[in-house]
Computed example of a mutant assay.
Amino acid sequence: MTLFVLDLGRDLLALGNVVLGGDFEKVRYVVFKQVDRYIADFDLYASTLLESLGLVGRAAVFFTAADISKMRRAEGRLVELYATVGLANPACIGATHSREEHTVNILVVSRVPLSRRGLLDLYRTAAEAKAATLTARGLCGGRPSLGTTSDAVLVAAPPGDAHYAGAATEIGSETSFLIYEILNK
C-alpha cells in the first residue's frame, strides 16, 4: 500500500505543516502518500494527487518514505492519532543533517471543539511531545532531538471556543501521552 485516505466524517478545521490543507482550512479527508524518491515540486504533486482522487479543496496531504502499511493508530477519549514513523534522518540539535527520506508524520484529530488559537496550541503540544519522546528514545544518541528533518504534524478539530490545548489541559495531556505511546510501539 502506498496510499492511505482517512475520511474524518465531517469537515474539521486543520492546522499543520503539511504540503496542502494545513492553513486553518476545512478538511474532510487526510491523505498519507508514500513516496520512494525526493519530489521536486511537492505542491504540484499533491495537487495532482488530490485531483486524481476527487478531493481538491477537501483534503490535507502528508508525504512519507516510511512504510504506510505500518501506519500506527491510537485512540483516547478526546483525540485520535495516526502516525507514520521513519527515523532514518534524525534532526539533532547541533548536528549536520542527511538527505535521507524518512519522516515522522502525526495526525491528531480532536473531538474537542477548538478555536484557531486552541488549534495552534494543540499543534505546539503535539510537536513538543514528538520531540520529547524521540529525545527520550535516544534518537540522537543523548542529544536533544526535534524528530527527523522532514516531519509533519497536522491537528484537526471541530471549530469552537476553547483556546487552550497545552499539557496542563485534559486534551493536551491525553495528546502528549498518546504521542508517546504511538512513537514507542
Rank of each mutant, 00 (worst) to 15 (best):
A132C: 09
L139I: 01
L81K: 06
E170Y: 09
D121F: 07
G147A: 14
G118F: 03
P159A: 12
Y164C: 15
V155W: 00
A167C: 11
R124P: 15
K130Q: 06
T169M: 08
A152V: 13
G138R: 07
E100L: 13
A162I: 09
T169Q: 08
S115M: 07
R117D: 15
A127V: 15
D161W: 00
C92D: 10
P90Y: 00
S110V: 12
A129G: 05
T84A: 12
A157S: 10
A83I: 09
P159D: 12
A167I: 10
A152L: 08
S176T: 15
P90Q: 02
N105W: 03
E170K: 12
L146I: 08
A88L: 12
A88P: 07
T169D: 05
P159H: 06
A91S: 13
A131P: 04
I93A: 13
A129K: 01
L122H: 04
G94Q: 07
N105T: 01
A132K: 06
A162P: 10
S98T: 15
A167G: 13
G147C: 14
L178H: 09
S98H: 04
R117C: 15
G138P: 04
E100G: 11
E170L: 12
A83T: 11
G86E: 01
G141T: 02
K130I: 03
S98L: 06
L87Y: 09
E101Q: 10
S150C: 13
A136E: 14
T175Q: 07
T135Y: 01
G160T: 00
I106D: 03
R116S: 15
L154W: 00
A136K: 11
Y164E: 15
G138S: 09
L119F: 05
A131E: 03
L134I: 07
C92T: 08
Y82Q: 05
D161R: 04
T84N: 08
S115V: 05
V153Q: 02
L120S: 13
R111P: 03
L114K: 02
H97G: 14
T125F: 03
H163E: 13
T169S: 15
A91G: 12
A131F: 03
R124H: 09
D151P: 09
C140S: 01
G86K: 00
T84Q: 03
L139M: 09
A127Y: 03
K130P: 10
R137E: 15
R111M: 09
A132Y: 04
A165S: 14
R143Y: 10
V155K: 02
L114D: 05
V155L: 07
G118N: 03
T175K: 02
A136D: 14
L134P: 06
V153K: 00
N89R: 00
C140T: 01
R143V: 10
A88G: 11
A136M: 09
G141L: 01
L81P: 09
H97A: 11
S98W: 00
A83H: 06
A131M: 02
D121H: 05
A127C: 14
G172D: 13
V155S: 11
D121Y: 08
N105Y: 00
R99H: 10
N105P: 04
A168D: 14
I93H: 11
H102I: 12
E174P: 02
Y123C: 15
S110D: 06
T96N: 08
S176D: 14
L134N: 08
D151T: 02
L87P: 06
R111G: 13
G138Y: 08
L120D: 11
V108F: 02
